[in-house]
């Protein structure tokens, strides 16, 4: 039997964690409980974060929004700043799982699962999000790119948890989007996806562009050469098509039951073409 703990505060969490070595942190449980059932490997204890108020807060100032690790996907979907200024993240949570999965699943859980198909990851990359990490005796922050170290792997040490994600708010006039190609519309694990953040000048010339692909490699893929190729130009279909070729060549997807590597390469490149229709 697993012992289950519901600390009310981080201090209580640290005490429980040190008294129960080998236990696992649980947020919404939508990845963890599925994994425990599939593998039959039960940790001796679960440390549930659901009653720690500090981890549920969303705060913001003019420059940054701070999202607690235990903020559910549903709450992100309902947050006006996310809707208006972080549209790529909003797009991602709106296609993540299903309503009950979004009621349980959290941003911290999506990050810590570190799946190459994790839908919040590409948006967090293009926004340059920082991950705040704490343990009983230490506090540190790393960029999301440093946080994710491989498929299913993060830079968390034992005894550490993610407490919040900080996202710099893009300058006015910046657009962002997340496009997901899956086998069907709902409840589909991503075959390939792309997040974009871009700013054009008054002539439609790209001043700033950040791109990141999901399910296109062992972790999120970024391709500075594709960004470089688009910067200083308008997003004509022709230019995007050429950039798409760089993308198809640059991503490093795998073959699996949901799609072949070749198909994923093609989709990853083609997702860029959607930018021709955004203004």
């Amino acid at each position: 039997m697993m012992e289950i703990f519901f600390p009310d505060s981080l201090d209580e969490l640290w005490a429980i964690m040190s008294a129960n070595p080998g236990g696992a942190v649980m947020a919404g449980g939508t990845d963890l409980l599925v994994r425990i059932r599939k593998t039959g490997r039960k940790p001796p204890a679960l440390f549930c974060l659901e009653r720690i108020d500090e981890l549920k807060q969303i705060r913001e100032n003019e420059k940054v929004i701070f999202i607690g690790a235990y903020v559910t996907h549903q709450r992100l979907l309902e947050n006006l700043t996310v809707q208006k200024r972080l549209r790529a993240l909003w797009d991602a949570v709106s296609v993540l799982g299903s309503p009950p999965v979004r009621h349980s699943g959290t941003i911290g859980g999506n990050l810590c699962t570190a799946s190459p198909a994790g839908d919040t990851l590409p948006p967090l990359y293009v926004f340059g999000a920082e991950v705040d990490i704490r343990s009983k005796s230490n506090k540190r922050s790393v960029s999301v790119a440093e946080f994710i170290t491989g498929p299913g792997r993060t830079s968390l040490h034992s005894g550490e948890i993610v407490t919040r994600v900080s996202i710099p708010l893009p300058a006015p006039g910046t657009i962002s989007r997340y496009y997901k190609a899956g086998k069907r519309k709902a409840m589909a694990i991503t075959v390939a996806s792309m997040a974009v953040q871009a700013k054009k000048d008054e002539n439609g010339i790209i001043e700033l562009i950040k791109l990141a692909w999901g399910s296109a490699g062992a972790t999120v893929v970024t391709l500075p050469e594709a960004e470089e190729f688009l910067r200083g130009h308008t997003l004509s279909e022709e230019r995007l098509r050429q950039a798409g070729k760089l993308v198809s060549a640059g991503v490093t997807p795998i073959d699996d039951i949901r799609g072949s590597a070749a198909y994923r390469r093609m989709v990853a490149g083609n997702l860029l073409l959607r930018l021709a229709h955004e203004n």
Binding site: I4, G29, R37, L46, Q74, P100, M187
Partner: peptide, 22 residues
């Protein structure tokens, strides 16, 4: 495993999957 929704219940008014709750 969370995929089918047959076990959906309402917890504090929100839909949740009772196969993925303890």
């Amino acid at each position: 495993a969370g995929e089918c929704g047959a076990c959906t219940i309402l917890v504090d008014g929100e839909s949740r999957l009772s196969c993925l709750m303890l």
